[in-house]
């Protein structure tokens, strides 16, 4: 092996070593933690950081839809996450209407109404055809007493009582107030942002995405690929240097 080539390999080995050091540290730490995810209960721990939430596609600047619930109360949708005043609520379908009734809040999709109490605790998920009259829900309203009125594709139904146990047919004239969309005030926006960040992401998820580079989307994945090639280069250059030393010995 001539002198220039020896020097070149040695330089490459040094440069590669320096370049892969930081990603190697990250890879090692995340890998070891993930290897013990059950013992460390990584899925029960949450990372609450605005930056992390942004990497998961959460746009904290403004919600996609807001429904005004009156008296500084609101329901907001942020790309798959839902905020009811200062609580994160879980819905299994994108909502089409939200309204405050005398006994709490109702959030509707075309075949379900999630009924929450005033503290945003889920009372019941009512389904059309089972706990609600059959039909496709179009909008929500209330009568003069704050009782829920549901507008279906083919008619209207009103709750017989505030607890939404049963419903009776009615007409549009029963509706005193319709659910309406609006915008968040500055203080509501701040409150919503705080609630979203408080939800966090499971630590296991974050570590997995760091480990795979997924957290930085395509750029992250390419960097991890380059890191893998760098490690391979380091091993090969290391072997070539070692081979020379063995020969010398």
């Amino acid at each position: 092996m001539n002198f220039k080539r020896k020097k070149w390999i040695r330089s490459l080995h040094t440069i590669l070593g320096i370049i892969v050091l930081v990603p190697l540290l990250l890879f090692t730490i995340t890998g070891v933690l993930l290897n013990h995810k059950h013992e460390l209960r990584l899925n029960d721990r949450f990372v609450k950081s605005e930056w992390i939430m942004k990497q998961y596609g959460l746009d904290l600047t403004a919600p996609s839809v807001v429904w005004e619930l009156g008296a500084d109360e609101f329901f907001a949708q942020y790309s798959g996450q839902y905020i009811l005043n200062s609580s994160n609520v879980e819905l299994d379908k994108a909502p089409l209407s939200a309204i405050k009734i005398s006994s709490g809040f109702c959030i509707a999709s075309e075949d379900k109404i999630h009924f929450f109490d005033h503290r945003a605790t889920l009372i019941e998920a009512l389904e059309t055809g089972l706990s609600l009259p059959k039909g496709e829900i179009v909008a929500l309203g209330t009568d003069a007493n704050g009782k829920l009125v549901i507008r279906y594709q083919d008619g209207f139904h009103i709750a017989d009582s505030p607890d939404l146990i049963s419903f009776s047919p009615t007409t549009e004239s029963a509706v005193h107030h319709w659910a309406k969309q609006g915008k968040l005030t500055a203080s509501q926006l701040k409150q919503a942002k705080k609630t979203l960040i408080a939800e966090g992401q499971p630590l296991e998820r974050v570590l997995l995405d760091l480990h795979s580079g997924n957290i930085f989307s395509l750029a992250g994945k390419i960097l991890v690929d380059l890191f893998a090639i760098g490690i391979l280069g380091l091993s090969i250059s290391g072997l070539l240097i070692a081979k020379r030393k063995w020969k010398k010995a």
Partner: peptide, 10 residues
């Protein structure tokens, strides 16, 4: 391992 998601059932 977790409570039921709603406070009433039919």
């Amino acid at each position: 391992g977790s409570p039921y998601k709603s406070s009433r059932v039919r």
